[in-house]
Simulated assay, not measured.
Amino acid sequence: MNLSIGLTVNGVRRDVELSDPRVTLLDLLRERLDLTGTKKGCDRGQCGACTILVDGRRINSCLALAVSHDGADILTIEGVARGDQLHPVQAAFIAHDGFQCGFCTPGQIMSAIGLIEEAQAGNDPERIRECMSGNLCRCGAYAGITKAVLDAQQTLATANQRRSA
Rank of each mutant, 00 (worst) to 15 (best):
M1W: 08
M1G: 10
T8H: 12
T8S: 14
T8I: 15
N10C: 00
V12G: 01
R13H: 12
R13L: 13
E17A: 13
L18E: 11
S19D: 14
D20A: 07
R22H: 09
T24Q: 08
L26K: 09
L26G: 13
L28Y: 12
T38S: 15
T38C: 06
K39I: 03
K40F: 00
G45W: 02
G45E: 02
G48C: 09
T51A: 09
L53V: 00
N60V: 01
L65N: 10
L65F: 15
A66M: 08
H69K: 11
D73H: 13
E78V: 06
D84C: 02
A91Y: 01
A92I: 07
A95K: 14
A95F: 06
Q100W: 01
F103D: 03
P106C: 13
Q108Y: 01
Q108N: 08
I113N: 02
A119Q: 11
A119G: 14
A121R: 10
G122N: 14
N123V: 02
E126W: 04
C131D: 10
M132K: 09
M132S: 10
L136I: 13
C137W: 01
Y142K: 07
A143R: 11
G144M: 04
A152T: 10
A157V: 13
A159N: 04
A159S: 11
R162A: 15
R163C: 11
